[in-house]
């Protein structure tokens, strides 16, 4: 095995070692399942009811995907408005920051009450958490155009539309993709947080609700199993978006 292969294998090897240590410690110290379940107990808990947990995961993922779609559309639209007019930039920027720093846990109950429909309110919450990276990255990308290229466009009589379509938007794409990758993780976090809030209000939906329910019933291994599924989903979303952005940039000759 050479250095590169070792590097690629490192996360899996480290994870395996940690799992072995975990299982070993739990057995050696005789820790009860309701405090810290070992990896094998967690796997057993998952296998007892894989359908229920996977359906819950599907529900969380559909909220995440809808929120990511909404967040990237909203982020790009607002960034375009900010690039088009200094007035819009001045008007939007502080409020985007306000929305970004407001803890979603604090406003989720209000949103759930106001929106009514459970699915939509979850998507709204997750969108609020996820839209900021797309917005700020795209705005930076739209502005980061070389002044010399702008001169070249002007000398050739380019219209505002041509400058946007042929210069600013393509130049912003790598920035947008970097933001999208961050937003993907945030959308999942936002969806789960909103589900927690909604779950304690009685909306039985998503993995977060399964976690809550399991913790009420002291079914701690099941709780951990749901948590593991969430982690895997997060890693998969990140990897998928990274792969998508690599593919797109390579197709355009930029990587």
């Amino acid at each position: 095995m050479n250095g590169a292969t070792w590097l690629r294998a490192a996360p899996a090897l480290f994870g395996l070692a940690a799992l072995l240590l975990w299982e070993g410690l739990v057995r050696a110290l005789d820790v009860p399942n309701y405090l810290v379940p070992g990896p094998l107990a967690i796997l057993r808990a998952f296998l007892e009811d894989p359908g229920g947990l996977l359906l819950a995961l599907l529900s969380t993922l559909s909220v995440t995907a809808s929120a990511l779609l909404a967040a990237s559309s909203l982020g790009v639209l607002l960034a375009l408005a900010m690039a088009a007019s200094p007035w819009a930039r001045a008007a939007i920027q502080p409020w985007a920051v306000v929305l970004q720093v407001t803890p979603i846990v604090a406003i989720a109950p209000l949103i759930i009450v106001w929106v009514g429909d459970p699915f939509t309110s979850l998507v709204v919450c997750a969108t609020i958490v996820a839209f900021f990276p797309v917005l700020s990255n795209t705005a930076v990308g739209l502005a980061a155009v070389s002044p010399e290229l702008l001169d070249l466009f002007r000398l050739n009589g380019a219209s505002r539309w041509q400058i946007l379509w042929l210069l600013r938007l393509p130049a912003a794409l790598p920035y947008f993709l970097a933001g999208l990758r961050i937003s993907g993780g945030l959308a999942l976090v936002g969806a789960v947080v909103a589900e927690f809030v909604a779950g304690s209000g009685g909306f039985a939906t998503g993995l977060a609700y399964r976690i809550l329910e399991a913790s009420y019933r002291l079914r701690i291994p099941r709780m951990f199993a749901a948590l593991v599924l969430l982690c895997i989903a997060g890693i998969a979303i990140n990897a998928a978006l990274a792969g998508f952005s690599r593919w797109l940039l390579r197709r355009r000759g930029e990587v």
Binding site: S146, E148, D151, L152, L155, G157, L167, P170, G253, E254
Partner: peptide, 17 residues
């Protein structure tokens, strides 16, 4: 008019995409 002046800068400033 447009296109009747050609410019070249120190940096090639090509569109990378």
């Amino acid at each position: 008019g447009p296109g009747q002046i050609g410019v070249v800068f120190q940096d090639p400033t090509l569109l990378p995409w």
